[in-house]
Amino acid sequence: MTAVVPPTAAPAGRVSAGRRWSRRDLTFDKISFMVVFLVIPVLGYILFVVWPFIQAFYYSLTDWSGFTPGMNFTGLSNYFKLFSDDIFMKAVGNSLLLVIVLPIITVVLSLVLASLVTVGGPSHGPVRGLRNSSIYRVVSFFPYVIPAIVIGIIWGRVYDPSAGLLNGILTGLGFEQFQSFAWLGEQRTAMIATIFVIVWGLVGFYMVLFVAAIKGIPAEIFEAARIDGAGRFRTALTITIPLIRDNIQTAYIYMGILALDAFVYMSALNPGGGPNNSTLVMAQQLFTTAFTKGQFGLACAMGVVLAVITLVFAGIVFIVNRLTGGTNEVAE
């Protein structure tokens, strides 16, 4: 009698692989989902973000005037010209000053205000913020809903040396040295006055951002810290900041990008760049070079330099956050 040999069973790996492939068969729903939510956004990003940047880099290697179809390839001559231009280097220095000072002041002040309106209330009972904290949130957020150009115009009138509100208040309090004092016309005060305006306009938004992040921390953690005898300052350093570290990183990057631009605020307060170009930033110089002087090739080189500085700044923030253990703390 001939023995019947049972068929050899297929390896388990092949069976599971076949089953996985059957589950991933491309259907109309899957294809339409990928097209709508993946292909179209990627194409839009390439078309409206990547491609203009490539174009700008190409134009930066030419002498294009912006208003003629013809242009001559000049290589890196525009970049050599930029780094030998004292006015542009002054603008770079002012932009770097803003990117160092503005995020620190805004983020620290926003953190303090957010802590006060969320966990800065009484030291007994449930963890809560100051009394009527919702009113403080609305009041502090109000400047952010005003357009930046309007804020610049308003504060330009406040700083007016002859009829400005600030000089009127100071002279009324007996400080006669501030009569007809030009806050935006003095080299030693122009940048400080401008930084104050930008912080005033943005601190409310970042405060609300941090309030939402702090609200996501379980109240039991703050109550445990209170039982252990931790004060408000120690609680902020050891609990609040580590647990919302990613939010702080995001806010810092956004503030740094705004500081590197700051075109609207600077143009509204000091259209000409301030006394001795003390408030001139790269975006202002780029606009003047392109639309006043008609040197679009050189202006594109300025834009490329600005974009590279922005990317370097963001990269430094990410690297510092990773080296200091930010990702690990959040993951834990």
Rank of each mutant, 00 (worst) to 15 (best):
G120R: 04
G121Y: 11
P122L: 07
S123M: 03
S123K: 10
S123R: 09
H124K: 15
H124C: 05
G125Q: 11
V127G: 02
V127Y: 10
R128T: 14
L130A: 08
R131P: 10
N132A: 15
S134W: 15
I135E: 11
Y136K: 04
R137L: 14
R137K: 15
R137W: 12
V138R: 04
V139K: 05
F141P: 11
F142K: 07
P143I: 09
Y144Q: 08
V145Q: 02
V145S: 06
V145R: 00
I146S: 06
I146Q: 10
I146W: 09
P147D: 07
A148R: 12
I149R: 04
I149V: 15
V150F: 14
I151G: 09
G152V: 06
I153P: 03
I153E: 09
I153R: 09
I153D: 04
W155R: 06
W155I: 04
W155K: 08
V158T: 09
V158C: 06
V158I: 15
V158F: 15
V158S: 06
D160V: 09
G164T: 11
L165H: 10
L166M: 10
N167D: 12
N167V: 10
N167T: 12
I169P: 08
G172P: 06
G174S: 05
F175K: 11
E176D: 15
Q177Y: 10
F178W: 14
Q179E: 12
Q179M: 00
S180R: 12
F181M: 01
A182T: 03
W183P: 05
L184P: 04
G185C: 01
E186I: 01
E186V: 00
R188I: 07
R188V: 07
M191L: 13
I192E: 05
I192W: 13
A193E: 08
A193R: 06
A193S: 15
T194R: 03
I195G: 02
I198C: 00
V199T: 09
V199D: 01
V199A: 00
W200V: 03
W200Q: 06
L202E: 13
L202F: 12
V203K: 06
G204P: 10
F205W: 14
F205K: 08
Y206E: 09
M207K: 05
M207C: 08
L209N: 13
L209Q: 11
F210N: 02
F210T: 02
F210D: 02
A212Y: 13
I214R: 05
I214E: 07
K215T: 11
G216W: 10
P218G: 03
P218V: 03
E220Q: 13
E220S: 14
I221C: 00
A224K: 01
R226A: 03
G229R: 05
R232M: 14
R232E: 12
